[in-house]
Design a protein around this nucleic acid. Structure first.
Length: 648
RNA sequence: GCCCCAAUAGCUCAGUCGGUAGAGCAACUGUUUCGUAAAUAGUAGGUCGGCGGUUCGAAUCCGUCUUGGGGCACCA
């Protein structure tokens, strides 16, 4: 018998007979570990307790107390238990794939009739029966022909296609519990009873293309969430409820920020409150960009097809463009135009006006560019994914040797903006050369090295995305993390030697010859619409004072003090604060409640006492109590707070 | 674009078997002047998303379009 050496996490190694299972290893350490073990990590791979170990390896035994492997096993086994439940209820349903995902799993089924909410209830009940049965799990390794014959007999065409897609040298693991069987690479728990029967919930049904391919059949996907305990599940469901409470579509209505209507799908009607956020944010960005050496421009909305043909958008992006045909007077043919989906071609037109010298570079050209894109109807979502939006766009025209410093400068700029707006954390995704690309290897080497060096010099880490760059150059994407841990891709930095070439941009170098500039596309917020949606959800509507559309409500307690109320409002407005009076004939409780629900950050309540003292009673949003302060003090405090972060 | 679900008063929602459209909040008008998260009475408010069909009769059943939602695909 061959001996193998297994190294444990404490560094000790022990000899075992080859072919020993992880379960036997666990039991050899202690009886209790043998009982508690659920899986192993073998050289970093997640390993089923029942699988034999044939070679030397580093091993660690997992129990349910190990969160990541424990949840992985629970969710994975639930996917199979659900598939079994579905086939026991409806034997003609075809099974496909069912992976683990965040918080749970899904499984895709092929079935003629849609699953209803009642069906989900029936499936859950059946799943609980399967769990209660504690059916032992076993896996067998089959050869390809046997597996295919098996699935042909069972009429499971999707499984046969999966087998065809598995590389020839990989073992086919057939996984069983009870009489039910699935193709699966594992690992699994030892019996179905190890899954917590009250720790999961089926959430919803959605369509999903087979293999994610829109030309393949649409399957029905059932999503479930699962945790180790009922309490963890409840906590998750509560978290979902809280996330729903900060939905920007709900808050946008409640705070009277904007609305959308069916005559203009995917476009925002900004109300005064919402537009105040928008312009405050835009003013802030304008100051930041000026300070960072950008010039601001503005370019046309409706642009002739000729330019889009030249830029390449007509061939590559036409399905996303709003095309406008115009019967021009005196013209023989209609003129065909498109609403601009991007600003870059127009910016090159400005660059191309007059000769540019190398002394003009880098030229940082910014536009709050209003763009229109015909997004697919199913992609639209509140103000986050729209058809009409404004980018905080800029293009930096520069020489190759300036890419690195411009990139570093942009990363500093972006991190300062994100910090000012309340996002401390962001991640950089570095997308490198794809397989299909243009340009020399030397040029790719230089561009990638410039970006990598810029990231390192600014002291950041990055996540590499090999092959994800554009066909002409690498790019960076910036993902920020919001208050409840969600990740949003907002910023981008993309090198582009292609468009200056297509649109004939040149500058005169020191050698008095014409040279081709590089163009660096960059955005920080992405679009104002989407970013404001993110801000609303991040702050749950309770925006920081400087961004809050309604900053102060001054509320009379009795109508006798209305004169003083109006005086206080006037003084606040004179100090640059967005203040309004509430002199309605309502109780102060009513006013406090209404303005608190409206997310107004400061309420100043005024009664006879305040008039006499020339003071105000200030209540901050979310506070239980108020404080009495002098009017001068409050104006000084609030006007300081009303300043944007860059002006403090 | 694709699958499923939905659309009733400004908002949130009820409306049974196909038989004259309802509530709470908001709004408006009185009364009330009140000290930090809902005073009180009354009034008004609707082409039940649009169009077509079935029916003696449609918010309700069927078709279709539009929009929204959950996903998928998309996001050079």
């Amino acid at each position: 018998m061959t001996q193998i050496s297994l190294t444990f996490p404490d560094g000790n190694a022990r000899q075992f007979d080859a072919g020993i299972t992880a379960a036997e290893v666990a039991a050899s350490i202690s009886t209790s570990l043998g009982k508690k073990a659920v899986s192993a990590n073998l050289d970093g791979a997640h390993w089923d307790l029942a699988w034999p170990i044939e070679n030397d390896a580093a091993i660690a035994i997992n129990t349910m107390a190990d969160t990541a492997p424990g949840l992985e096993l629970i969710r994975h086994d639930l996917a199979h238990i659900m598939a079994r439940a579905v086939q026991e209820l409806w034997p003609d349903v075809k099974v496909t794939i069912g992976p683990v995902r965040d918080y749970g799993w899904f499984y895709d089924f092929d079935r003629a009739e849609p699953f209803t909410p009642e069906d989900l209830g029936a499936i859950e009940t059946k799943m609980k029966q399967i769990i209660a049965a504690k059916d032992p799990v076993r896996t067998e390794i089959w050869d390809r022909e046997r597996a295919i014959a098996h699935y042909k007999a069972k009429d499971e065409p999707f499984k046969i296609e999966l087998i065809d897609r598995i590389p020839g040298d990989e073992p086919l693991r057939m996984y069983w519990h009870g009489d039910w069987q699935d193709l699966c690479r594992g690992p699994h728990l030892q019996n179905t009873g190890q899954v917590p029967a009250d720790g999961f919930k089926l959430m919803n049904v959605a369509g999903a293309y087979w293999l994610g391919d829109s030309t393949r059949p649409m399957l029905q996907r059932i999503y479930g969430v699962a945790f180790k305990s009922r309490d963890d599940l409840k906590a998750h469901l509560t978290m979902l409820e809280e996330a729903a409470l900060r939905d920007h579509r709900k808050l946008g209505r409640e705070m009277n920020l904007f609305h959308m209507q069916e005559e203009a799908p995917g476009q925002v009607f900004w109300h005064p409150n919402g537009w105040t956020i928008y312009t405050t944010l835009q003013d802030y960005m304008r100051r930041k960009q000026r300070a960072a050496g950008y010039v601001e421009v503005n370019t046309p909305q409706v642009v002739d097809r000729k330019l889009w043909v030249q830029s390449g958008h007509w061939d590559n992006y036409q399905e996303h463009m709003f095309i406008v045909e115009v019967d021009e007077e005196h013209a023989r043919e209609k003129s065909i135009n498109a609403l601009k989906p991007m600003n870059c071609p127009c910016h090159v037109q400005i660059f191309n006006q007059g000769l540019k010298s190398y002394r003009d570079l880098p030229l940082r050209m910014a536009e709050f560019g209003s763009c229109s894109r015909y997004e697919p109807s199913g992609a639209l979502h509140g103000i986050m994914r729209v058809r009409g939006f404004t980018q905080d766009d800029a293009h930096i025209f520069c020489r190759e040797d300036q890419i690195e410093s411009e990139c570093a400068g942009f990363i500093e700029f972006l991190s300062s903006v994100y910090k000012d707006l309340g996002f401390e954390e962001f991640e950089i995704m570095f997308a490198t050369r794809p397989e299909k690309r243009v340009g020399t290897e030397e040029s790719w080497d230089k561009m990638e090295a410039a970006l990598e060096s810029a990231i390192r010099k600014t002291g950041h880490e990055f996540t590499l995305e090999p092959g994800e760059g554009a066909f002409y150059a690498p790019k960076l994407d910036f993902k920020l993390t919001d208050a409840i841990g969600r990740v949003w891709q907002c910023g981008t930095f993309q090198v582009d030697p292609n468009l200056p070439e297509r649109l004939g941009a040149t500058y005169i170098g020191e050698d008095s010859q014409r040279h081709r500039p590089y163009m660096l596309h960059r955005a920080c917020l992405g679009s104002f619409e989407r970013f404001i949606g993110i801000l609303i959800e991040n702050w749950a509507g309770k925006l920081p004072f400087w961004l809050a559309p309604r900053q102060v409500v001054v509320a009379s307690i009795v109508s006798d003090v209305d004169g003083y109320t109006n005086e206080v409002v006037a003084a606040l407005k004179a100090a640059g604060i967005r203040a309004e009076a509430d002199t309605r004939n309502e109780k102060i409780n009513y006013k406090v409640r209404e303005h608190s629900l409206g997310k107004v950050p400061v309420i100043l309540a005024l009664g006879a006492r305040e008039v006499e003292e020339r003071s105000v009673s200030m209540r901050r949003l979310g506070d239980k109590h108020s404080r009495t302060l002098s009017l001068e003090q409050v104006i000084a405090d609030l006007s300081a707070e009303a300043k944007a972060p860059d002006q403090r």
